[in-house]
């Protein structure tokens, strides 16, 4: 009995220590006011003052910072722009990732571990270095432009780096494995005889793909989309390195609140709202996973 209780308790303690407690701290900061102090916000919880201190502490918390977020169009524009960039790059990642997964799943079985390795291989290098390499590839005098000039396809170097295009390339490149792997997992399990059955019943290869392969890989597609969308929404490194200054993303706004304005309370409020936005897809994702598990049984 005790053992079972401990087993159940461990994941909850984990969640409590690594998610709930930090989140509550962030919520608390988001309800505070900025101050020139160390740490730079008020009020501080002083347990030595006892109950009255605690009361005093809570009386100083308010929702002012959240109201502030509504006062400037910067914030909702940044959220919206992040949502747009995340959604659009998820779509591109799907369009690029699906054929790759499909090719992997249709490759001869002795090739598959190698192909899988090639997909995972980039993870062995630092993410930062890989994004930096893209700067080298996409820059004005970079590899891509040199190559295109050499082939004679273009006569003036293309401006890709520091544009939204570069951000999309960066996000798609970085998160591609997260799209490929779950889709590949569903496609690999796909019974070839289902496709033969579809053809046998009058489908061309293409309609068999649409009517059988795509619906059956739906769990993988949904999982992949969430795995790309959720981190892309809060992405900070890729837009700051590859994107121009016009690429407005909430991660960057958050960084500026925290580091440039030293306004930890507003930065925390931005983070809390971001989390609330993310909770919706995360819950949907969980539902999807659960549904799949039930269907699998």
């Amino acid at each position: 009995m005790l053992r079972r209780l401990t087993l159940i308790l461990i994941p909850y303690l984990w969640l409590l220590a690594l998610f709930l407690v930090p989140f509550l701290i962030v919520v608390k900061i988001s309800l505070s006011d900025v101050a020139l102090a160390r740490p730079p916000y008020m009020p501080q919880l002083d347990l030595a003052a006892g109950l009255s201190g605690l009361k005093d502490f809570f009386s100083q918390l308010d929702l002012e910072n959240f109201w502030f977020l509504t006062s400037d169009d910067l914030y909702w524009k940044a959220y919206l722009s992040s949502l747009k960039i995340a959604a659009f790059s998820t779509l591109i990642t799907l369009l690029v990732g699906f054929p790759i997964s499909y090719a992997m799943a249709s490759a001869r079985s002795e090739w598959r571990p190698t192909l899988m390795m090639l997909v995972i291989l980039p993870f062995w290098t630092s993410f930062l270095i890989r994004v930096y390499s893209w700067m080298g590839i996409l820059s004005q005098n970079g590899l891509l432009n040199s190559f295109l000039l050499w082939t004679g396809l273009i006569h003036e170097p293309l401006t890709i780096l520091n544009t939204p295009t570069a951000v999309y390339i960066g996000i798609v490149y970085t998160y591609l494995p997260f799209m490929i792997l779950p889709i590949y997992a569903t496609l690999e399990k796909l019974d070839i005889s289902l496709l033969e059955a579809a053809e046998d019943l009058g489908c061309s290869r293409l309609t068999a793909f649409w009517l059988v392969t795509v619906p059956l890989s739906k769990p993988g597609i949904i999982a992949g989309c969430f795995l790309v969308f959720i981190p892309a929404l809060g992405e900070f490194v890729i837009p700051s390195l590859l994107g121009g200054s016009r690429t407005l993303m909430i991660g960057k706004v958050l960084w500026e609140e925290f580091f440039n304005n030293r306004d930890w309370p507003v930065a925390s409020a931005v983070a809390v709202v971001l989390l609330l936005i993310l909770i919706i897809p995360i819950i949907l994702f969980q539902r999807n996973e659960q549904k799949n598990r039930e269907a699998g049984q």
């Binding site: 033969e196 059955a197 046998d200």
Partner: peptide, 13 residues
């Protein structure tokens, strides 16, 4: 021609 597959190959969805 139609075929009945050994695994039945019913569309699970």
């Amino acid at each position: 021609v139609n075929m009945m597959f050994q695994s039945y190959a019913l569309f699970p969805h």
